[in-house]
């Protein structure tokens, strides 16, 4: 970051001020160093391998099903319809199903609480890094780890389905922007979940509590809704996947998403605001936290 700021023709004082402002919100090389370390720790852990197996299982099942399926109709429009339909189904019922959410939330529950439990937060606090840099670093590393796995499987599923149903090369090229948008939205969902887990990890300092709380917060919405006597439509809005599917409307141009009444960008704004809110809350909570 210092190198980038150094390019601009500013006085040394202003450069220091810009650099310190960026660091205060966690945008710096140090946050990147923490994120790389978090990513490395995450992908080399055994529990992450289990998560990969869980997410990859859907791809294995889809590949097996497709190889044994009788295909009667093969054309671009039908292939795209089937591919988008499968992605919607997998998002709702597998990758971000209750079990899928549980995998992400549990594995990211120890981001800060694990450091507190192992007493290793002292090592980070012993170096000149801001609280925001710790939060952003941990967040980015974890989002990158889960986001990459889910997206590799998502893209593979999409192209597997599309090619099996006879999508031409042109059709595949033309859908690259949609696929990139899928990837972006999947990253946003993972970011929302990780930021929530990170927040509970900061405030509880106990991994088990943090995992339980974040899971209850995510799946508890419908139950609370039922208890409060909310309508099914309102209850649906307590699920993050609802916003993901809503935001994917422009990419799901073949599907009719009748229940999603808002404009697609409204869903997108909600999806972007969730991680921002929890990251801010986590930073403020960690700033006020004493490390005895």
């Amino acid at each position: 970051m210092t190198t980038i700021i150094g390019v601009f023709p500013l006085s040394a004082e202003k450069k220091a001020m810009v650099s310190s402002t960026f660091r205060a919100v966690g945008i710096s090389g140090r946050a990147l160093v923490i994120s790389i370390e978090t990513l490395r720790n995450m992908v080399t852990s055994r529990k992450f391998m289990l998560a990969v197996l869980y997410f990859a299982f859907s791809l294995i099942v889809d590949a097996f099903t497709l190889s044994n399926q009788l295909i009667l109709e093969k054309n671009d429009a039908f292939a795209m319809f089937k591919a988008q339909q499968l992605i919607q189904e997998r998002l709702e019922t597998y990758w971000f199903s209750t079990l899928g959410l549980l995998v992400i939330l549990v594995l990211s529950a120890d981001l800060v609480s694990g450091e507190v439990e192992r007493d290793t937060l002292h090592a980070l606090y012993g170096k000149p890094i801001t609280v925001a840099e710790i939060i952003i670093g941990k967040f980015l590393g974890t989002v990158l780890a889960f986001g990459s796995v889910i997206n590799v499987i998502l893209v593979s599923t999409f192209y597997l389905q599309a090619t099996t149903f006879g999508a031409s090369k042109n059709a595949l090229y033309n859908t690259v922007d949609e696929v990139l948008y899928f990837i972006f939205i999947a990253f946003l969902v993972v970011a929302g979940l990780v930021s929530l887990s990170l927040f509970f990890s900061v405030i509880t300092s106990k991994t088990l509590q943090s995992a339980l709380l974040s899971f209850v917060a995510v799946i508890g919405g419908p139950f609370i809704g039922l208890l409060l006597g909310l309508s099914p439509k309102a209850i649906e809005k307590t699920n993050i996947v609802y916003y993901a599917i809503g935001a994917l409307k422009p990419a799901f141009f073949n599907l009719e998403l009748a229940t999603y009444t808002w404009k697609w960008y409204t869903f997108l704004i909600v999806l972007i605001c969730i991680p921002l809110f929890f990251l801010l809350a986590s930073t403020l909570a960690l700033k006020q936290k004493e490390i005895p």
């Binding site: 660091r23 007493d119 290793t120 002292h122 000149p128």
Partner: peptide
């Protein structure tokens, strides 16, 4: 973070 630029701290039980 500014204090830590000029300060080094060795806790009673250093953790790694």
């Amino acid at each position: 973070h500014k204090v830590m630029e000029t300060l080094g701290y060795l806790p009673e039980r250093p953790t790694h």
